[in-house]
Simulated assay, not measured.
Amino acid sequence: MGWGVERTPVPSGVLRSAVIYAAAVVVGALIVLAVTATMSWGRPLHCDDGTSGCLSVTQYVMVYVPPAIIVLGAITAFVRTLMVWRRRGPWMVWLGVGWFLFAVMLVFVASAGGALMS
Rank of each mutant, 00 (worst) to 15 (best):
G113H: 11
S111T: 15
T76C: 05
S111M: 02
R87C: 07
V79Y: 06
E6Q: 12
A115E: 02
R43Y: 08
G113C: 08
D49F: 09
V84F: 03
G113D: 11
P66H: 02
T8H: 07
A110E: 08
W99H: 09
Q59F: 03
G2F: 06
G96K: 05
M83G: 03
A115F: 15
G89T: 10
V14A: 08
V93Y: 01
L30V: 09
I75D: 08
I75W: 00
P66A: 01
I75P: 01
V5L: 13
M105K: 01
V61W: 03
P11T: 04
F78N: 03
V63A: 08
I70S: 01
A22I: 02
S40L: 05
M39Y: 03
V109M: 05
V79K: 05
S40D: 11
A103P: 14
T36W: 00
G4E: 08
V5S: 15
V63C: 04
V14W: 10
V97S: 12
Y21P: 03
M83I: 13
L55E: 04
M92V: 14
G114R: 02
G13R: 09
G4M: 12
S118E: 14
V104P: 00
P66T: 01
D49T: 10
A24R: 04
Y60S: 07
M92N: 12
V79G: 04
G114V: 15
P9M: 09
S52P: 01
L116I: 15
G98T: 13
V35N: 04
R16I: 10
P11S: 08
R7L: 14
W85L: 13
L72W: 06
G114T: 14
T76P: 00
V84D: 04
V26R: 05
G4C: 11
A112F: 02
T51H: 07
T38V: 10
